[in-house]
Design a protein around this nucleic acid. Sequence first.
DNA 1: GAAGAAAGTTAGCCTAGGCTAACTTTTCGT
DNA 2: ACGAAAAGTTAGCCTAGGCTAACTTTCTTC
Lengths: 151, 151
Amino acid sequence: MPPKSPKRPASSAVEDYLEQILELINTKGYARVVDIAGRLSISQASVTNMVQKLDADGLLKYEKYRGLVLTTAGEELARNITHRHQLLTDFLQLLGLAPDVIHHDVEGMEHHVSPETVHAIESLTSHLKRRPALLRGIRSGIPATRSRRNF
Amino acid sequence: MPPKSPKRPASSAVEDYLEQILELINTKGYARVVDIAGRLSISQASVTNMVQKLDADGLLKYEKYRGLVLTTAGEELARNITHRHQLLTDFLQLLGLAPDVIHHDVEGMEHHVSPETVHAIESLTSHLKRRPALLRGIRSGIPATRSRRNF
DNA sequence: GAAGAAAGTTAGCCTAGGCTAACTTTTCGT
DNA sequence: ACGAAAAGTTAGCCTAGGCTAACTTTCTTC
């Protein structure tokens, strides 16, 4: 059974799995079913099912009772979603939002951000970091006034 | 069969339906199954099924072959998602993104934005609109430099 | 009013992604 | 080495939300 080439865009669920698998591999060296299940707040059975599917799709290599490793394709996808996750987290932190709000929002938003939007938010975040006074105004919710110096 | 009170958060699909129904009612005075199906790029049968479910959930009143109207609860939800949609569209336009990118991204992101995040982006957008030079820098992708005047 | 087209509905089906329970394998502690 | 606990797997099931095909109703045109 040759793995199917990944023709369709990865679903949000697939992205969530890959993201957590990469994170576990980076922090622990391996990704166990029980850990993935814990991080995603789902059952171990669901993880096993999805892991088998991701193997069939060529995104990881899985061996029953023996674990899994990401393929190159899987790792690339995982890196991509991880970058989006970090970028959005960074951005919302800059806006002064609370960690639980950030976690909830990023978790959903990250699956819907195009590469162009990623670049735009990178640029925006970079510029905002250089303007602490502007950030203070934004965070305080004080309405913007017409500033004399618009740069 | 009394309508169930809306206990769970509305799903993305429900939000999409309500959003389009409100938009059609506002522009045409009514929302037909065929129009909803066209806007959401799905079959008429799917619309009928979902509309019946939304009636059961108390978000609209539906009469077979005769159409539908939003309830107060349904309209409130629809207004909320519409506001989120408009805000995110405004924000991404400010960043200079293309309409098709904006449409794609907003369509997915709008379901995952908390009220706090809405307020933060409102504030950010308001401030950005007052700073055309900053916007030009962001849109051009020029790296941010340490500005002398940080406001 | 009749016929055809368009809109709308019902019935049965599918997939994605989740669940529980029962079972299997591995790990851990003695 | 053994037994229990933990981890992992399989089997069967569910829901949400979509599909097609067949059917029903409404609208349009003559």
